[in-house]
């Protein structure tokens, strides 16, 4: 039917289209596009936010490597990727493998609702919640005491060695539900006959996972990785509320450094360089992960 209908009207160039696109595009250009270019411009200057600015060349970028505080912040972001992305994706995959044939179980929607709940809660609320959980009398120490491990109870967010993993585990908690929901809905799309016939052929659970479940999950895995890796790199709210980058700068991350330098310590140029590199990292990693996606979609 569609093939017979004349498509001329759709093919014709319509200049009026620009009027439809204009409001959105103007907003986008004024509040995102132009400032984005300015961020790049700022990064080549020294500026304290008030007085005149001076040309700094690539010094702000060199500092990303030479300044240990900045270097550490990117290392911390790398460690957070492990907690935010690697832990939940691997764990959720393992769980999905175990329950892959249960994806169509009754009551699934209730589990999905509960698993997904942390995603809709403001990160500030999540952060204050976990501050209490990690506090000296909080849930973590309560559990440790309950199993007789009083000796290792501590103020988790206050220790140099424990603060970053503690922040990271909040990310793991956030990620696991998201990944499980994504993977289980991916598995629910697999024809049950595939599992039936694999079983008839005597495939074990491992073969079944590798040859049926995993290939079907390539798309959802790419999505889960993109979301969680980007969330790890962008981490700001959690750090701001739980530790303010401390103790010392044990939990400082690029987004926090950019904010702090731009608005507290008068190093706007340096903040710009951090922001540019962070943005490029996010774009590159996203494009790289998208390559995992199966090409034949669409």
């Amino acid at each position: 039917m569609a093939a017979i209908l004349p498509r001329r009207s759709r093919r014709r160039v319509r200049w009026k289209a620009y009027l439809y696109v204009l409001p959105a595009f103007a907003f986008f250009a004024i509040f995102l596009g132009v400032p984005l270019l300015q961020t790049a411009q700022y990064s080549f200057y020294d500026w304290n936010g008030i007085g005149p600015s001076t040309w700094a060349g690539v010094q702000n970028y060199v500092d990303l490597i030479l300044d240990q505080k900045l270097r550490d912040s990117f290392v911390h972001a790398g460690i957070l990727i492990f907690f935010f992305a690697a832990v939940p994706v691997v764990l959720a995959l393992a769980l999905t493998a175990i329950i892959s044939r249960g994806a169509r179980m009754r009551g699934m929607s209730i589990f999905r609702t509960l698993l997904f709940l942390p995603q809709v809660i403001a990160s500030v609320v999540v952060a204050t919640t976990w501050v209490a959980i990690y506090s000296p009398n909080g849930l973590v120490n309560q559990l440790l005491r309950a199993v007789g491990l009083d000796s290792i109870t501590t103020a988790w967010l206050g220790g140099f060695a424990t603060a970053l993993p503690a922040v990271g585990l909040i990310g793991s908690w956030l990620g696991i539900g998201l990944c499980l929901v994504l993977f289980l809905s991916g598995v629910a799309n697999i024809q049950p006959e595939l599992f039936e016939s694999a079983r008839l052929e005597g495939a074990g659970p491992v073969r079944e996972f590798l040859s049926i479940t995993l290939p079907a999950l390539r798309g959802p895995i790419a999505v889960a990785l993109t979301l969680t890796v980007v969330a790890a790199l962008k981490t700001f709210d959690l750090v701001y509320i739980t530790t303010h980058g401390g103790p010392g700068n044990a939990t400082s991350v690029p987004a926090y450094e950019a904010y702090n330098r731009a608005f507290n310590t008068g190093q706007v140029g340096s903040a710009g360089a951090v922001a540019v590199v962070l943005t490029l990292l996010i774009l590159i990693i996203t494009v790289f992960i998208q390559k995992l996606q199966p090409k034949d979609v669409e």
Binding site: A24, F25, F28, F31, L32, G33, V34, P35, L36, Q38, T39, Q41, Y42, G49, V230, L233, K234, F236, P254, A255, A258, Y259, A262, F263, V268, A271, G272, V274, A275, V276, L278, T279, I282, L283, T286
Partner: peptide, 21 residues
């Protein structure tokens, strides 16, 4: 494509000059 790239931009990419603007 430009709009789509906006989906990936972290707020840090534009928030600093935007504040001064």
């Amino acid at each position: 494509f430009m709009l789509l790239a906006g989906l990936l931009l972290p707020a840090e990419a534009f928030i600093i000059p935007l504040y001064y603007n």
